[in-house]
């Protein structure tokens, strides 16, 4: 890659960075909007419980409720634990 290309590629970036960031935050907020009102509180409570045992930052947990069919909803809980070695 030439020096010129290097400058070009960094210049190209801001609009695509904006798009990527927007796609993530908008999807996140839509998910939250479509869920029940208690979901954010549930997420905070679960985080509190886990924090009693392991110190994890708030953005390392995500709770979502997915409506699979009329009778079945799945509550999905994702927690990333910190690397033990560190």
């Amino acid at each position: 890659m030439s020096l010129l290309d290097y400058f070009r590629s960094t210049k190209k970036k801001s609009a695509s960075t904006a798009k990527e960031r927007l796609q993530i935050i908008v999807a996140h907020e839509r998910n939250r909007r479509s869920g029940p009102d208690y979901l954010p509180q549930l997420e905070r409570d679960i985080l509190e419980v886990i924090r009693k045992y392991v110190d994890i930052p708030a953005d390392q947990i995500s709770v979502s409720l997915e409506q699979r069919s009329d009778e079945l909803s799945v509550l999905e809980l994702n927690v990333s634990f910190p690397d033990e070695k560190r």
């Binding site: 190209k12 801001s14 798009k19």
Partner: peptide, 16 residues
């Protein structure tokens, strides 16, 4: 600015 990649394009905004 869109052509320079400094501004979201019509397609970008529509996609989101």
């Amino acid at each position: 600015r869109v052509a320079k990649g400094e501004m979201l394009s019509v397609e970008d905004v529509q996609e989101i």
